[in-house]
Design a protein around this nucleic acid. Structure first.
Lengths: 124, 124
DNA sequence: GCGAGATATATCGCTGAACTAAGTATAGCA
DNA sequence: TGCTATACTTAGTTCAGCGATATATCTCGC
């Protein structure tokens, strides 16, 4: 199942920021990285990603430069200190909200819970 | 901290459905219930809730009736079987997405993780 | 008995994040 | 020579949640 607009809403910039936390990347690479690392469930369109990157750049959360050394013109993005801070606060908020929803779902969450701890060794 | 529009987006109907899973409620009661059970962090406005309830009603996910026995005119909402099914599928999707994001955040999530299992008895 | 504030529901218009769609341009391969 | 993948950009659309506003009743203090 691929996650749509409703699911992604409000967490996309966090996903992009955290993706850049692994080191500088160029746009197209971020698309592929998110697709792969999500198991093909987060498929961003270019028209969705680039405006986000432009905004992060405007906000000085990423620093950018062009590189055409490989023949291909690529625009690279690297997280700034400001970007790292924003990532952390956005992550904190997101995790907090997720915990809150889980709490509200209560037993329903327990029952459907499978995927959260992938290191669940407790035999059923 | 109260969660804003970006956080709530796409999970509000799930929250409403799951709130109704505890038994029939009327609109104003749902507002109060969500506010309290979230520790004051999910504050819905009437103008947000009622359109959601109307849509759930149109979709036959809730059954409704008016009751003025107490003097107050109240419109009660009860989950239908169809609504219960939608709640489950929406919950499954949400939990799945949350797990996916957690996975993408990786060590960042571990580091900021505190709130997720409130029943954490494992001594530190 | 009268105003203030809580209770209770409804609707309209706005905002902005994410999407669609379309465009530009080059590399590599059949 | 075209087709596909790579790589970035921008203009226009959609629609969920929000703010503002309207209506009406109940309760409490004064």
């Amino acid at each position: 199942m691929t996650f749509g607009r409703d699911r992604l809403h409000g967490s996309l910039d966090l996903l992009v920021l955290s993706n850049l936390a692994g080191g500088p990347r160029y746009g197209y690479q971020i698309l592929a990285s998110l697709r792969e690392r999500s198991g093909g469930r987060i498929i961003l369109k270019a028209g969705t990603l680039y405006p986000i990157l432009h905004k992060l750049e405007r906000d000085k959360c990423v620093r950018t430069w062009w590189d055409d050394a490989t023949g291909r013109d690529r625009k690279w993005y690297a997280l700034t200190e400001r970007g790292r801070k924003r990532m952390e606060s956005r992550a904190r908020e997101w995790l907090d909200y997720a915990a809150c929803v889980r709490g509200l779902l209560g037993p329903l969450a327990e029952r459907l819970a499978p995927p959260s701890p992938p290191l669940d060794a407790v035999g059923k």
